[in-house]
Nucleic acid binder design. Structure first.
Lengths: 245, 245
DNA sequence: ACAACTGATCTCGGATCCCATATCGTGAAA
DNA sequence: TTTCACGATATGGGATCCGAGATCAGTTGT
């Protein structure tokens, strides 16, 4: 019953099925729900202490996103990401965000430029903090600061590009993959973190100079670099999981 | 009751809610359901002679696609496309399909190249048929031939690009807009039809020459040209509707 | 006359019930 | 012993029922 209360609290001011979809997706991404396993609607319903109705909608929504393969009257099969999936996803985003950077260089407004500068300064602050001698990222403060700055940078870029469909496409793409894995891939190396901060600043400078072509090239390169890091890390994780099995 | 039979027949081997979502979307795109109007779930259910359950899922799915704005306990509002929406959508697709063309130039396989050549030849045949003196496109035969060739060309291009996420992004983007409007925009002018066929052939030739950069540029240009035509036509249609009101 | 309160009604979201179909096991026949 | 057929069971899809919240009209009080 307390479980039910939790759920209700979590879903305040939003559809329950949305919450369920998000939560089930999260569990798949974290490996809590195994790739390749079947999802039973009534099992999930019992798990979350809700009826099958919202579960059905959540499952259907995840099917639409390509997270689950829905087979009529059989069930839903969990589709797993491969390293190749991750790379392909980032390659598409590299194109889209490159385009966004080009548009932003032409159209950005002063308030957005200010937000972009603030995010870039934050990256530098995070690099400095990580470089400090006693820099053990206790309770993930650096991670949350980095994630926040990154979100703001990319969200502002898309806003400045002023193309709603472009923003929607990027959102769709990002939704297909685990979030917040970029920092985990970066944090291992001070060098990568520094490069990342420099990437962001370079993009900002190209935009400030209204050099659309350069902004596009840099943003594209930035995403492809992230693709390398995240894909490699994911391959290592897969290897670890395979050995543990 | 016969209505129910029709629906069941149409949805054979597929979820009813999928069919409903598709049909409701179609009615919105054709103007059968007015932009800005409210959709009531039980009204739709009565309309289609089904219960509210599949209607709910269909409405939710359309909400997820951005076709409807869902307001809890109020209803679903039909969001209309603006000329700007159409242009933005095509601009995104120009980037994505440009990228696809570049990848295809590097990776295409012989069977796919054959399919691409066949589609391009078909375009030439259609142009020739349209140029014939008595070329009144009775029962839309030319339109269906053109649409078919176009589908095959772009589908083959995406297949040759060999990036599942790219294909998914393009599919998502295309779903956001009315389909089959491109031919309607083209068919008015023999000149545009000729240009369109030439565009496709030029893209094919760049791919045959493994010139990725050129293929990208041409594909991008091709889509942007289509964007112009479709947007202009859409603006004219809006004008007509406004006058008729 | 105008504003605020109250309840009737409407609409959606979640729960429960029912049915069609796919799977799997058991038994009978070749 | 093997194979096919039939039935028991499990599962998902659709229909119906119920409850919460929101709108709107009517009434009442200032």
């Amino acid at each position: 019953m307390s479980r039910t209360q939790d759920v209700l609290a979590a879903t305040s001011e939003g559809a329950l099925s949305e919450y369920l979809a998000e939560e089930i997706h999260r569990r798949i991404l974290t490996g809590d729900i195994r790739v390749g396993s079947w999802l039973r609607q009534d099992t999930l319903a019992a798990e979350f202490n809700v009826s099958r109705t919202p579960v059905r909608e959540a499952v259907r929504a995840l099917g639409g996103r390509g997270v689950l393969e829905i087979i009529p009257r059989r069930g839903a099969l969990v589709i797993g990401s491969t390293p190749r999936d991750i790379r392909e996803n980032y390659e598409v985003r590299a194109e889209l965000e490159g385009f966004a950077a080009e548009l932003a260089a032409e159209r950005i407004q002063t308030a957005q430029l200010t937000a972009l500068r603030a995010a870039v300064d934050d990256f530098d602050g995070i690099v400095a903090a990580a470089a400090a001698p006693d820099a053990a990222d206790r309770d993930g403060e650096l991670e949350s600061r980095w994630t926040d700055a990154n979100e703001r940078f990319h969200a502002t870029l898309l806003e400045a590009a002023d193309n709603a469909h472009l923003a929607a496409s990027v959102r769709e793409s990002r939704r297909r993959l685990p979030h917040n894995t970029t920092f985990a891939a970066l944090s291992g190396s001070q060098r990568q973190l520094t490069i990342n901060a420099a990437d962001h600043r370079a993009i900002l400078e190209a935009i400030e100079a209204s050099d659309g072509e350069k902004a596009r090239r840099l943003a594209r390169q930035h995403l492809l670099r992230a693709a390398d890091l995240v894909t490699r890390r994911f391959e290592r994780e897969l290897e670890v999981q395979r050995r543990a099995r």
